[in-house]
């Protein structure tokens, strides 16, 4: 600590920490957004993420290249999401039930495959620093946001996705296959959630470990609702969650007036803040009208 560089200053560290913690949330939330705007509830994000985290660690480990890990994570995420799509789009299963099942499936499949591949069920081998991402996923999350915002506003695909969730009959009448759009959106959400998982296992830590998503899929979903199902506000919500978490970490162990603040109290601060923000500032948040309703041609 002889010399203090600007990047060692507390505000910069806090900002860096915020962006690091927000990155996986942004990826997952963008995935959730795609699927939900197309009319498919996606509480399976957590499971998609977990599969992605595992696939990324395996891919990066095998090819000694983080990009291959990310590629495989996206692919596995898409494949896993397609299973979900079969159930909820093809067979019109209850989306909450099927989504929960996917989460359980991912929690069980990942240690199972880990055992087969590496003969340990807990975690994949540690990736050396050269085989991990530096800050690429952290920038990537915001590039993705820009892409998605553009897709939303300026392309017909964006319009179709929104109509699939709002008024699928109208989309159908316009000659577009609603279920095809929904299917693609769910698969894309799998790709993005897979990348969120890759961010966790190949960037923010050095291996896959069991249940490492630790509820981040659900936080991403909360961000989608908080962001009123729109890309930019959703990403900002992720950033807020990341910020609160970063602040929470730095407040731990801080003494106020000579008295240590209990860690439990500090750790509930993000949740209190979320409740306050949700209740006070968000205004009316309206879900896509046909969210959760399977589409049937009449």
């Amino acid at each position: 600590m002889d010399e203090q560089n600007w990047y060692q200053s507390a505000p910069f560290q806090l900002a860096a920490s915020t962006f690091r913690l927000a990155a996986p949330l942004v990826f997952a939330a963008m995935g959730g957004l795609l699927s939900e705007r197309a009319g498919v509830i996606n509480i399976a994000l957590e499971g998609f993420m977990l599969m992605g985290a595992f696939a990324a660690a395996v891919g990066a480990n095998h090819f000694a290249d983080p990009w291959m890990g990310a590629l495989i994570a996206g692919g596995v995420g898409a494949a896993f999401a397609s299973i979900y799509a079969v159930f909820v789009i093809q067979y019109r299963a209850n989306q909450i039930v099927a989504g929960t099942a996917m989460n359980f499936l991912a929690a069980g499949l990942t240690p199972f495959f880990c055992k087969i591949l590496f003969d340990v069920s807990g975690s994949t081998p540690t990736l050396p620093i050269a085989v991990r991402f530096g800050s690429e996923p952290i920038w990537g999350a915001w590039i993705l946001l820009a892409l998605l915002a553009w897709l939303w506003r300026s392309t017909s695909v964006g319009l179709w996705i929104r109509f699939a969730g709002e008024h699928p009959q109208a989309l159908d009448a316009a000659g577009i296959q609603v279920n095809r759009i929904r299917w693609a959106s769910v698969a894309a959400s799998g790709v993005l959630a897979g990348l969120a998982g890759a961010t966790l296992s190949v960037c923010l830590s050095s291996s896959f470990s069991r249940s490492m998503t630790a509820g981040r899929g659900f936080m991403a979903l909360a961000a989608v609702i908080f962001g009123k199902w729109r890309p930019v506000p959703t990403a900002l919500a992720c950033l807020l969650f990341g910020f609160l978490d970063a602040v929470q970490m730095r407040l731990q162990g801080v003494q106020i007036g000579g008295v240590g603040v209990p860690v439990q109290f500090i750790q509930i601060l993000p949740y209190i803040a979320t409740v306050i923000v949700l209740a006070g500032f968000i205004g009316k948040s309206r879900a896509p009208r046909s969210l959760g309703l399977p589409f049937e041609k009449v």
Partner: peptide
């Protein structure tokens, strides 16, 4: 089981 947070 939260190495990401442990790292942070």
């Amino acid at each position: 089981n939260n190495p990401t947070k442990g790292r942070e």
